[in-house]
């Protein structure tokens, strides 16, 4: 075939792979074949250079980002020093807690290298909830599942820390009593 025509009639392999990529994200594991078609038209693909700020601590948060390729550093600033919280790579996502509840960002995010992020925002999700409630439902179920898992993990961590603190206080008071 003539390369010109094959170029014109070539299927958009990029978009195909976007749906394919979204299928690999655990957040969207509940979705079915047709849902990805809607999801694809819903998300925003953004390209970032290395070292670019995605959002700063205290910014109004309205959605989550999935890393398609590249890397992102999550950190907080305390007295001008950056405290690293996490380094995320392709397939990871962040900011999912502000997807359903409006809140300020609790940490900052900066790209480590040239990065492609896929943004999913509350406004689009609300639109989807009106048009295709079933799809929105499955996305929200996935988000809820992930958030609950993290909440449980955080609760366990708090309990563990508190026990450790109690033990430390007990041992220190034991020390002072001695």
């Amino acid at each position: 075939m003539n390369p010109l025509w094959s170029n014109i009639f070539r299927k958009k392999s990029e978009e195909d792979s976007l749906a394919y990529f979204l299928k690999t994200v655990p957040l969207f594991s509940d979705l079915k074949g047709r849902d990805f078609h809607y999801l694809e038209s819903l998300v925003h693909t953004r390209h970032y250079d290395a070292g670019e700020i995605v959002f700063e601590e205290g910014d109004p948060g309205s959605g989550m980002y999935v890393i398609r390729n590249g890397g992102v550093k999550i950190f907080t600033r305390s007295e001008k020093r950056e405290e690293e919280l996490a380094i995320l790579g392709a397939g990871d996502f962040f900011g999912e807690t502000t997807l359903t509840a409006p809140a300020s960002r609790a940490a900052s995010a900066r790209t480590l290298e040239s990065t492609e992020l896929i943004g999913l925002f509350r406004a689009d999700l609300l639109e989807l909830a009106q048009k295709y409630p079933a799809t929105a439902n499955r996305i929200l179920l996935g988000v809820t599942r992930i958030v609950s898992e993290r909440l449980q993990a955080a609760g366990q961590e708090i309990r563990r820390l508190r026990q450790a603190q109690d033990a430390a206080i007990a041992s220190s008071s034991f020390d002072t009593e001695m």
């Binding site: 925003h44 309205s62 943004g119 509350r122 406004a123």
Partner: peptide
């Protein structure tokens, strides 16, 4: 909205909706 620079994209997107 996709023309907005990365740093202000999320804000512009949210504002346009509101």
């Amino acid at each position: 909205i996709s023309l907005v620079p990365n740093r202000y994209f999320e804000m512009a997107h949210d504002l346009s909706f509101l």
